[in-house]
Design a protein around this nucleic acid. Structure first.
Lengths: 345, 345
DNA sequence: TTGAAAGCGCTAACAG
DNA sequence: CTGTTAGCGCTTTCAA
C-alpha cells in the first residue's frame, strides 16, 4: 500500500512473478537465466505465463550485482559528427547487439577533461567494455580504464610511446600519406604539397611521414617538401587552399578531410579547377565528395572493417582479459578518379 | 583470497573504503550521496582520502537498486547516420551530461523489430528516460515505454491518431512544404513539382500537404500538382531527377534530403543547371549542400533547438511523470540562396 | 526437481 | 554526529 503512494507503480520483480506462478523466486530466476537447470516443462510454462501477464523484464542492474555482465558496452569518440566515426559506430553497434549488448555512444568533443568525466560516469555504470578514440590522442584517460580493469580497445589514435601496451585498431596513416604522394609522383608530379590538421594527434604526423618517405624515394630533397598545417576548421582549410596556390605546386595531398573541405571550397569559389590547375588526392571519403566534379581521387580507409574489428577485438579481450595486447592496423586503398593529371616537366 | 582467483581483482566497494578510513559504510555512503548529512569535516576528509587511494567509484547499478536514479538516458533514432539526427544528438548529449546523465545512443535502422529489441534491452537496464524517434513512425514500441513507466519524449515523428497522448518535439513538416512552395510561387513559378520519400512516415505526407496548400492559395488546381515519391535511396533520387525534367516543370521542391541528393547528382551529371534549367528549393541542410554552386535555397530546421528542447522536456517529464503530455513544434525558415530564378510566363 | 537463504554494493531508517 | 541494520532484485549454493 505504501508503495502505491509513489507516483510510479513499482516495476514488477521476480517475486511478483513467483507469487503469481505459485513457485519460488529461484525457479523464476532459472527460467530467465542462461544457466540450465532441470525444470518441469509445465512449471516453466506457468512462469513464462505469469511473467508475460505481468510484463516482467529482468533488472539488468540487479543481475549485474551478482557478478553477471552488465550488458553495456561504451564507445567514446572524439568527434561524434565526423562520418569516419559514425560509419564505424554503426557496425560496432550492430555487432554488439548481436552479442546481446547495448552500446552507449558518447562524444568527448576532442576535450580530455570531458572525456575523463564521461569515463568516470561509464565506470560508475560498470560497463563491460569500452572502445575509445582518445581526445587529442592523450593517454591519461586510457589509463583510467586499465586501472578499473575495464576491457578496452583504443580506436584509430595510437600512443606512440606505448603503442604495444594497448589493444588497438586503426588504419595505416603512414601508408595513406605514402600512397597519396606516390600516386602523384607516378603521374609525374614533383612539386607536391601536403596539407592537413596541425594537431597534437600523431595520425596526421604519420601521414606527413608517409608523404616524406615517398618524396625521398623519388630523390626529392627536404627543401622541396611543402607541408601546410592548420587548425581543424573550414576557414583554416580555405586558407591552406590559398597558400597551396601561392606555393606554386602542381599537386597536393589533402591530408585530412575537414580541412580538405575548406581547401576545395576555396578552389571552387576561386575557379581553381582540378586537375587542370592543380592535381589533388584526398585522404578520406566524406559524403560531400560525391558532389565534386571532376571527382576526387581519394585514399579510402576501411571504416566498416575497422568497426567490426574493433568490436570483435573487444569481445576477445572481454573473454580473456589476460590476453597480451594486440594491434591491428588496416591498410588503405587508392580510389582513382579524375583529380590527377599527368605532369610533364 | 578466493576472490583473487578471478582474473580481475574485484572492484573496490564502499566496504573497502570504510575499512581503510576506519569508519562505517553508512558514513562512506553519505559522503558520496547527494543527500546532506552533518559530518565532521575531518572524517569526511579521511573518507575522501581513502576513496582516492583505493580508486573507489560508486557502483551506479547497485545504487539504482535502492530507488536511486540509474544515471542513464537513452536516445533511440531510426537513422543514425543522418546528419539531421546527429546534430540533435550532439546537443541532447551535452545537456544530459550537464545533468549528470550518460546517454546511450542507439540505432533502430528504421526497423521496428530491431527497435523493439533495443527498447527491451534498455528497459532491462532500467534507464531513467528515453528520447525516441520511432522507426517507420510506428506507435507500438512507444507503448512499451509507457507500459514500463519510463519517461519518454517522441522526437520528430508524430503519431497522427494519438498525437496529443505523447510528449513530442518535432518540426513543422506542413510548414516546411508550404514555405518551400510559396517561395517558388512568389518567384512566379506555377508548374511546380514536389519530390520526396514515399514513406509510411507522416512527415513527408505533411510536407506534401503544405505544398498543396500553397498551390491552392495561388488558385492552382489539383491537376497541376505533381508529386513524385520514391524509396529512400540515391538511385531513386536520381530517377526522380529524370522524371522531374520529363514533367517539364519550371521548379521543384526537393522534399527530403536523401532523395534530393540523388536528384541533384542526376542534374549535375546531365548538365542540368539550376536555376537556369529548373529552380529548386530543398527541405533540409545536409553538409554536402555546401559544395553546390549555385548554392541551393533550403528550408532549415532548427536542429540544435530541437535537440535541446527534447532533452529539457524529457527532464520535465522525469520530474513530474504525471504531467499532461505536451507537443512542441518548431517552425522552419527559408535560407534564400541562388537556386531559384524569377519566372515570367 | 525445487526451495530456502545468503549475499552482491548501496541507501536510509533508526538507534545510539 | 555516527554506526547498525534491513532491504533493493537477482543469482547460486545447499539441502530437501
Amino acid at each position: 500500500m505504501r508503495q502505491r503512494d509513489k507516483r510510479l507503480a513499482p516495476a514488477v520483480t521476480i517475486k511478483d512473478v513467483a507469487k503469481l506462478a505459485g513457485t519460488s523466486i529461484a525457479t523464476v530466476s532459472y527460467v530467465f537465466s542462461e544457466r540450465e537447470r532441470p525444470l518441469r516443462p509445465e512449471l516453466r510454462e506457468k512462469v513464462l505465463q505469469a511473467a508475460a501477464e505481468l510484463g516482467y523484464v529482468k533488472n539488468a542492474a540487479a543481475s549485474s550485482l551478482k557478478g553477471k555482465r552488465r550488458g553495456i558496452l561504451a564507445v567514446l569518440v572524439a568527434q561524434f559528427a565526423n562520418t569516419f566515426f559514425t560509419r564505424m559506430c554503426v557496425d560496432i553497434e550492430s555487432i554488439a547487439r548481436e552479442q546481446g549488448y547495448v552500446v552507449t555512444l558518447c562524444n568527448s568533443d576532442e576535450d580530455p577533461a570531458q572525456e575523463r568525466l564521461i569515463l568516470e560516469r561509464l565506470i560508475a555504470q560498470r560497463i563491460d567494455g569500452c572502445i575509445l578514440c582518445p581526445a587529442l590522442a592523450r593517454e591519461e584517460n586510457a589509463t583510467l580504464l586499465r586501472q578499473y580493469q575495464i576491457p578496452y580497445v583504443i580506436l584509430e589514435r595510437a600512443f606512440p610511446a606505448s603503442f604495444s601496451e594497448h589493444n588497438f585498431v586503426g588504419h595505416d596513416n603512414f601508408q595513406s600519406g605514402y600512397l597519396a604522394t606516390r600516386h602523384l609522383l607516378e603521374a609525374g608530379h614533383r612539386k607536391i604539397a601536403f596539407s592537413g590538421w596541425d594537431s597534437p594527434i600523431p595520425n596526421v604526423r604519420e601521414r606527413v611521414n608517409g608523404y616524406r618517405a615517398a618524396m625521398r624515394e623519388y630523390r626529392l630533397t627536404a627543401d622541396t617538401e611543402r607541408v601546410l598545417l592548420g587548425p581543424l576548421t573550414e576557414v583554416a582549410g580555405r586558407d591552406m587552399g590559398a597558400r597551396l596556390l601561392a606555393e606554386g605546386v602542381s599537386a597536393a595531398v589533402l591530408g585530412q578531410q575537414d580541412t580538405a573541405k575548406g581547401t576545395l571550397l576555396h578552389f571552387q569559389d576561386h575557379n581553381v579547377r582540378w586537375p587542370q590547375d592543380i592535381s589533388v588526392v584526398m585522404i578520406g571519403t566524406p559524403e560531400w565528395a560525391d558532389f565534386l566534379r571532376p571527382r576526387i581521387t581519394c585514399i579510402q580507409r576501411p571504416e566498416k572493417q575497422m568497426g567490426r574489428e574493433a568490436a570483435s577485438l573487444l569481445f576477445e579481450v572481454m573473454h580473456v582479459p589476460s590476453r597480451p595486447p594486440v594491434q591491428r592496423i588496416f591498410p588503405c586503398v587508392v580510389i582513382e578518379r579524375e583529380s590527377v593529371k599527368r605532369w610533364e616537366e
